[in-house]
Design a protein around this nucleic acid. Sequence first.
DNA 1: TGTTGCCTTAAAGTCTACTCCAAGGTTTAT
DNA 2: ATAAACCTTGGAGTAGACTTTAAGGCAACA
Lengths: 126, 126
Amino acid sequence: MNIKEVSTKLDIPADTLRYWERVGVIPPVTRATSGYRDYQPEDLNACNFAKCMREAGVSIETLIEYIDLLQQGDDTTETRKALLQEQLKTIAAKRDAVQATYDKLQQKIAHYGTHTVTPFAYKEEK
Amino acid sequence: MNIKEVSTKLDIPADTLRYWERVGVIPPVTRATSGYRDYQPEDLNACNFAKCMREAGVSIETLIEYIDLLQQGDDTTETRKALLQEQLKTIAAKRDAVQATYDKLQQKIAHYGTHTVTPFAYKEEK
DNA sequence: TGTTGCCTTAAAGTCTACTCCAAGGTTTAT
DNA sequence: ATAAACCTTGGAGTAGACTTTAAGGCAACA
């Protein structure tokens, strides 16, 4: 699978896929003899994982750290697990913040303009 | 309430509060005769609103648009409401994406290293 | 076999959203 | 009344994450 197909399938710009590989957000991608990237299923998994983690707010730096550990192989399993657990907490916090804003904004919209004087949601309700 | 107190109370850097006001993410803040900012309750609401929206992923540009409409006054109520509804959709999408990643990562962690060969979550499960 | 379209890298450029700095005015405590 | 600790603005600088450009190689089709 070439880079264009992966880009289309996963909806990630080709430039971003190259950038991720270059800085180490995903492991080196399998190459054809031409030098062209030829993404294998596991390469796709790596890209998709990176995409989801990025969308959830995980930094490039953290992802590089994870891939580094993975490529050291040895036994970094526990360290990797701890790293993921830490990120899970961060993601949970983000989720909660987004949900809270969602709820309040929805309520605000519900009677926007009907009996509203304050144009800002999140006012401490009396 | 001076800028330092607001910064502490809302946990937003003072530089960011000044920046937000300068670009129009919040309306102009009330001033003392000295020229110092003297945040009124409604100014605080505006800052808190901006903070929540930013955390939920709403862009500076969008917030400026909202404040612009607000200050035109006239009757921009419907336009503003539409803008907020649009953002609500974006926020919902973000929340869902973050939640999905949370769920899958949690599952992944649950048996990380026990019977795992793939170090990437989000593999299409067979 | 040419040409159209895809691929490669390295390096420089861009965008968003702050964040810091310099020069100077104000307030508060001693 | 003077130093310490605030505050102000305008403008420059930075961080993070891409995104574009330049120069050139490979591939597929007419």
